[in-house]
């Protein structure tokens, strides 16, 4: 059974190798505003099939919004030229999700910062959810998975080193383990593109490294396209071939990882002095929050 799935993986690699140079993601003039707040201000982004791309930028630069639009989880703003295609399938155009978006989402596996597993279901069932886009709707809705599919789920769990946890509830796992289960789910989904939104932001350094190793392995072994947004530039440089930097919802830098230097980062995150200021203002706003909390009981007493 496991051999069968390896065979499948080999076929994938061959197919992608012969197709190298095709685009896995094509995003054209993508914009998104929330009220008066512009999250993404017109981004064009093409990603080659089989590439591993890091999306970096400070908080609020639009990384997350961009990734969620690529996966068809939110709409873009209405815009005649705006469109997003993934694996040659239209995800959305002109601010409207494609009418086949539910089916087409199965070509994009999404890894969330907060893992988004169903905590009361077993680890194995969480992984099997990855098949819902592929198997007939009626069978998925009845939670009817074949023996072969269950074996595939176990094989995926084995690959992320968690097959002994298959029967446990997802809620009993640590954050790093839950993220690996989420990756196993995306393995079963067998999507051409894996989009990961801050997959390691909530993890300790050891778990973070493990998760990035697995994502990198999937990219190299299975030839999947991986786009990952990251807070830590070090990780981006170590694991990705191409680095795209966002600031204020626009692409500010787009380089190969080797070419990225400190000046680019200064340009992306603002001057170094600003960066220090940013740190201070963050702690200031924390203080403000505390004093606001202290003011509340005083008000309540009055």
């Amino acid at each position: 059974m496991i051999k069968l799935s390896t065979l499948k993986i080999n076929i994938d690699v061959n197919r992608l190798a012969s197709n190298s140079g095709t685009k896995a993601i094509e995003a054209k003039s993508v914009r998104k505003t929330f009220g008066n707040n512009t999250a993404v201000a017109g981004v064009d982004l093409d990603v080659q099939a089989g590439d591993m791309v890091a999306l970096i930028g400070s908080s609020g630069s639009g990384k997350s919004t961009l990734l969620r639009m690529i996966a068809g989880l939110i709409n873009t703003d209405k815009n005649e030229q705006g469109s997003i295609k993934v694996a040659n399938k239209v995800i959305q155009a002109n601010g409207k999700l494609d009418k086949n978006v539910r089916k087409n989402r199965s070509s994009i596996a999404f890894i969330f910062q907060q893992f988004n597993l169903v905590r009361r279901l077993s680890v194995q069932t969480n992984v099997l959810i990855g098949l819902l886009g592929e198997i007939p709707r009626w069978r998925g809705s009845l939670c009817w998975f074949t023996k072969e599919e269950k074996q595939r789920a176990l094989a995926a769990l084995e690959r992320v080193g968690l097959n002994s946890f298959a029967e446990q509830r997802a809620s009993t796992l640590s954050g790093g383990q839950q993220q690996r289960v989420a990756i196993a789910r995306s393995l079963l989904q067998d999507a051409d593109v894996i989009v990961a939104d801050e997959p390691i932001a909530s993890l300790d350094p050891r778990s973070a490294k493990r998760v990035m190793d697995i994502l990198s392995d999937i990219n190299k072994q299975d030839g999947k396209t991986v786009v990952v947004s990251l807070h830590q530039v070090d990780y981006a440089k170590a694991y990705c071939r191409r680095i795209v930097g966002l600031a204020n919802g626009e692409v500010k830098i787009d380089l190969s990882a080797d070419a990225l230097n400190d000046e680019d980062l200064v340009e992306l995150y603002g001057t170094e002095k600003d960066e220090i200021d940013f740190g201070v203002s963050l702690s200031q706003s924390e203080n403000e929050f505390v004093s606001e909390g202290a003011a509340v009981p005083a008000l309540a007493r009055a």
Partner: peptide, 28 residues
């Protein structure tokens, strides 16, 4: 909302979002 979105992202149907994402959360 997170788990429901997790199910949605796999290409599930609306009914499947409810079956896998909502019902396990509210069953108890």
């Amino acid at each position: 909302e997170g788990p429901v979105e997790g199910v949605r992202a796999t290409g599930a149907s609306g009914l499947q979002e409810v079956i896998f994402g909502v019902i396990p959360q509210v069953l108890p």
